[in-house]
């Protein structure tokens, strides 16, 4: 347990060191890469609550990432064009305020997760995977055929949204914001794991029958976890859209859902900083190997195979020499 804590601290400290090195060496692109790691790790933390704690293999988590992204895109584009969004009697002015956008993204993702969870959690195993994938594809094709917000071409936002007291256009400040949110999500996950709800969810994952025998309702526990997971992933989506100042249907794609799963498996399923390790490894491989060959996914595949076959505890499992996540 202590060992994993040190590794987690080293991992997060390492990310900060890279950013510090990039800042002093005037390497803004490296700061952008580190920001990407922080945001994707945040999305991974969201999925890790559903997958690592609840055992829910969701192949549709990009839905929440995309909803977060489009919440940002829609609100910012209306603020940008000074044209309010009219939904029946409701007239919504756009906004360039990050806190408001985050709140909208989290509420919208949470509602979507609740509705998707109510349907998909009636099933289990491979059926759950297929239903979440189907929802993902529904949202993807809806976004493609939504010309008001760019359709297949996506939607550009010219200026990054603002946060009180910060210059978000400064890469280091935007990184700091994303990193702080990642730390908050990790702290929440750590507390969640050891709280009665988290333990009950873990118990329900291990044995739904035994959990029911002590009065726990596995479906309800999973639904709540799925909603929490969707909310965090939605927040990451809003940040990701702000990082790129662009949203497109690819934020809903099943490939992105797969990548989120890869982060977690690479880092270690259920491990607190598994998504951070996985996202960092993924971005590093994409950056370095992507420069050598456009077929860099082959190496990623080989690494994933190696982890699944020889290190089921993921990269953090290798470092701690423990297979099961229990800290």
């Amino acid at each position: 347990m202590m060992r994993e804590r040190y590794i987690n601290a080293a991992l997060l400290g390492g990310l900060l060191l890279v950013v510090f090195w990039a800042y002093t060496g005037d390497e803004p692109f490296t700061i952008t890469l580190a920001t990407r790691v922080a945001i994707l790790a945040l999305a991974g933390v969201g999925l890790n609550i559903a997958l690592g704690q609840g055992g829910l293999v969701s192949l549709g988590h990009a839905v929440f990432f995309g909803i977060g992204g489009y919440a940002m895109g829609i609100l910012a584009s209306h603020a940008q064009s000074y044209q309010p969004l009219t939904l029946g009697p409701l007239v919504i002015e756009g906004t360039k305020s990050m806190p408001l956008i985050w709140l909208t993204a989290m509420v919208a993702s949470g509602i979507a997760a609740l509705l998707i969870g109510l349907v998909s959690l009636r099933t289990g195993g491979v059926y759950f995977i297929m239903i979440t994938l189907a929802f993902g594809q529904m949202f993807y094709y809806f976004a493609i055929s939504w010309p008001a917000y760019g359709g297949e071409d996506g939607l550009s936002i010219y200026v990054r949204n603002g946060f009180p007291g910060l210059n978000t256009l400064d890469p280091i400040q935007f990184f700091g914001l994303c990193f702080a949110l990642l730390l908050a999500a990790l702290a929440f996950h750590a507390a969640f794991k050891h709280a009665p709800f988290g333990l009950a969810l873990n118990a329900a994952r291990q044995s739904p029958d035994r959990a029911q025998a002590v009065g726990l309702d596995p479906t309800r526990l999973r639904l709540i976890a799925f909603v929490i997971s969707g909310v965090i992933t939605g927040l990451a989506g809003a940040l990701f859209a702000d990082l790129n100042r662009f949203v497109s249907p690819t934020m809903f794609s099943w490939q992105l859902s797969g990548e989120l799963l890869i982060f977690i498996i690479l880092g270690g399923t259920g491990r607190l900083c598994g998504p951070v390790a996985g996202a960092a490894m993924f971005i590093a491989l994409e950056h370095w190997l992507g420069g050598l060959s456009e077929y860099w996914h082959i190496y990623l595949g080989a690494l994933l195979l190696g982890v699944v076959l020889f290190a089921p505890g993921g990269l953090i499992g290798i470092a701690t020499r423990r297979e099961a996540a229990h800290d």
């Binding site: 333990l199 873990n202 118990a203 291990q206 002590v214």
Partner: peptide
Amino acid sequence: RCFAPLTVAENLTAA
């Protein structure tokens, strides 16, 4: 049929 990967305290807390 305890919850095998949970500790004693966690088994009790979960229920």
